[in-house]
Design a protein around this nucleic acid. Structure first.
Length: 470
RNA sequence: GGCGCCAUAGCCAAGCGGUAAGGCAGAGGCCUGCAAAGCCUUUAUUCUCCAGUUCGAUUCUGGAUGGCGCCUCCA
């Protein structure tokens, strides 16, 4: 039984899908006015991993992630770049996919965009007006929070407390300061769509209510995003959807913790953010992914280069074991021993169980990865003496788990593997001859020079191994 | 002011009622021409502090201290 921490209930609960064997997930995607930063990358990786685990656990998953492609920030960006809002959105959506592919994130089943759902958005606003949950003023339409009795149920606040807050400003046209825009009248020159209230565009929150219900229906299983979306964004999504339908919007609300820099939230307004692409210039995507998954998704993670270096080192340990298995899986075992085979099989069985138990417990990737480390030790000690079949089983397990955490298998280097392999064989043969002559100078020169090329040599007892290093 | 989260070794990080996983770094050893990789041993009588509940608490309750977040766009 998978348990998830449901923000709505404030505790871990059993996950029971709306429909047996199926999971419908919606994750709030980026507003595309800039390249994504590391903080944006966390929910993308976290929910990608959750989605992958549901698949691993046998569920059929429908995964929807939107793009907010019309918004003040995009309009401003278009002015800065002397471009159009649509072109800005297009540019950063393309960049998003480039960046996120490096993290081994699978595309969603649907990537809906706000601009492609105007009729549905307008229809929902009309419905809310008809129900008395909204009101129109001078081309704007606001949601009336007082009309929705459950307002605040996700974030655990009530209207009176919030109104006491010093930072709430009363909008001139709003009946209640907490009311929020469903539709905003267009200012001259802004992109706009025709509506019963005049030309304008949707408020930020309405899109997610509309698009999630459009593709997943009411009462879908999981709604995810960063913890900063709990209020007001997700609270407002609930208000809009449930005021209209009179029903349940999403069943489980999952929120990831923040990336911090010097223990402060990485955010655009603080200016302490690092673009994903900047980080990817220094570290491979799978290292970044591994780093993100090494902490439970609800805990904060502090960012600095050194932590990424440590992640690279740790991941390397798992990869060495993985490479060992690959190598042994292709070679018939020379002196296979029953005990070694049993030990390896036992370790694999332990890993399979421990991994599932960890992930079942609110997607505890840190614990799941620890189980993999335990397994690597067993691989390193027993695999060389194990039967080929046992080795192959171990390899298959690791590959199956990598379908979930998606960072073990090294990515293609974009080089001609066959050619490199032949050249390496040649260099290694030359070096071996030097070693037989005890010409250590030549042998070390070759090893050092290869290191500079990003290739590490390891002189094993039986064979020389080589690998790419980060 | 309201709501909420966190505090575990040099660093990172699980555990959350039964006597402290894992990684990195460090020390010693094995292996090696030297390395690298790997293996073995070792590194928290103790989980911010103070009360309480309990046979027993890092884990539960109350309080204190420190840090962070949301209430405004934010993942």
């Amino acid at each position: 039984m998978i348990q998830v921490y449901n923000t709505m209930e404030g505790r871990k609960v059993d996950f029971v899908p709306r429909e047996a064997g199926k999971v419908a997930m919606y994750v709030c995607g980026p507003t595309v006015y800039n390249y994504i930063h590391l903080g944006n990358a966390r929910p993308i990786v976290v929910f990608d991993t959750i989605r992958r685990y549901f698949k691993y656990a046998g569920y059929a998953v429908t995964y929807v992630q939107n793009f907010t492609d019309v918004d003040d920030k995009i309009i401003n960006r278009a002015l800065e770049e002397k471009s159009s809002a649509a072109a800005v959105a297009e540019k950063y959506i393309a960049a998003y996919f480039e960046d996120v592919q490096e993290l081994n994130v699978l595309p969603a089943d649907v990537h809906p965009r706000v601009t492609e759902h105007m009729p549905q958005i307008i229809a929902l606003v009309e419905q809310l007006l008809a129900k008395g949950a909204a009101y129109a003023v001078n081309g704007d339409v606001y949601f009336a929070v007082e009309s929705f009795a459950d307002y605040g149920k996700l974030s655990g606040r009530d209207l009176e407390d919030m109104q006491a807050g010093a930072r709430v400003q009363v909008g001139e046209q709003k009946r209640n300061p907490m009311d929020f825009a469903l539709w905003k009248a267009a200012k001259p020159g802004e992109p706009s769509w025709e509506s019963p209230w005049g030309p304008g565009r949707p408020g930020w929150h309405i899109e997610c209510s509309v698009m999630s219900r459009e593709y997943l229906g009411d009462g879908f299983d999981i709604h995810g995003g960063g913890a900063d979306l709990i209020f007001p964004h997700h609270e407002n999504e609930i208000a809009q959807a449930e005021a209209a339908s009179g029903c349940c919007f999403a069943r489980y609300w999952l929120h990831n913790g923040f990336i911090t820099v010097n223990d402060e939230k990485m955010s655009k307004s603080l200016g302490n953010f690092f673009l994903l692409r900047e980080i990817l210039e220094k570290f491979p995507g799978d290292v970044v992914r591994f780093y993100l998954l090494n902490t439970h998704y609800r805990s904060p993670i502090d960012f600095d280069d050194e932590k990424l270096q440590i992640a690279a080192k740790s991941l390397g340990r798992i990869r060495n074991a993985y490479a060992l298995l690959q190598e042994l899986a292709e070679q018939p075992a020379a002196g296979a021993q029953a005990e070694a085979s049993d030990a390896l099989r036992q370790a694999a069985a332990t890993l399979r169980e421990a991994f599932a138990a960890a992930m079942d417990d609110d997607f505890n990737t840190a614990l799941a990865i620890a189980a993999i480390f335990d397994f690597t030790k067993a691989v390193n000690t027993h695999a060389a003496q194990a039967e080929q079949a046992a080795v192959q089983e171990a390899l298959q397990l690791l590959e199956a788990l990598d379908e979930v955490i998606a960072c073990i298998k090294p990515r293609q280097k974009g080089v001609d593997d066959e050619l490199v392999g032949k050249l390496m064989d040649l260099l290694i043969a030359v070096r071996q001859q030097a070693r037989q002559r005890k010409d250590w100078g030549t042998a070390d020169y070759i090893r050092d020079a290869l290191k500079d090329c990003g290739i590490a040599l390891e002189d094993g007892a039986e064979a020389v191994r080589w690998k790419f290093v980060e």
